[in-house]
């Protein structure tokens, strides 16, 4: 059974690119349009990895990570930030919130799937 990844980004084109890349590598993908949508979908179905943007309307990526880490079934699920943000202060906040890694946009599909494979196989 293929592993499922929750892809959270307010950009429709970026979600499309993520979905295309991850599905091509054999993963199932659940898409969410912002942090709150991501949290709702994560509650309905426990996924194997979360990939989230930081700057989104409503709930941002850091808030989503904190909320997920507060849920029992998401304490050990890998969470990656995929964002345009490059600052060390933001990375430190991501790490403190519970992110397992920081990927700066734009992403390369091969490098992205390599990281995902490393984390969830």
């Amino acid at each position: 059974m293929s592993k499922t990844i929750l892809a959270v980004d307010d950009s429709g084109s970026l979600r499309q690119m993520l979905s295309f890349s991850l599905k091509a590598a054999g993963y199932g993908v659940v898409e969410a349009v912002d942090g709150q949508d991501g949290l709702d979908k994560a509650r309905k179905q426990t996924v194997d990895l979360v990939l989230t943007d930081q700057n989104m309307p409503g709930m941002d990526g850091l808030s989503l990570i904190k909320a997920l880490r507060g849920m029992k079934n998401y304490q050990n699920v890998p969470i990656l930030m995929l964002t345009t943000e490059t600052g060390d202060d933001m990375k430190a906040m991501g790490r403190a919130a519970g992110a397992n890694g920081w990927l700066v946009k734009p992403f390369d599909p091969a490098r992205l799937t390599e990281v995902v494979k490393k984390l969830i196989g």
Binding site: T84, T86, K91, R95, A99, N100, G101, W102, L103, V104, K105, P106, F107, D108, R111, V115, K118
Partner: peptide, 12 residues
């Protein structure tokens, strides 16, 4: 970003 090359990846 100043380029369209893929960005850095850092695992914590």
């Amino acid at each position: 970003q100043r380029h369209m090359e893929s960005g850095d990846i850092e695992l914590f």
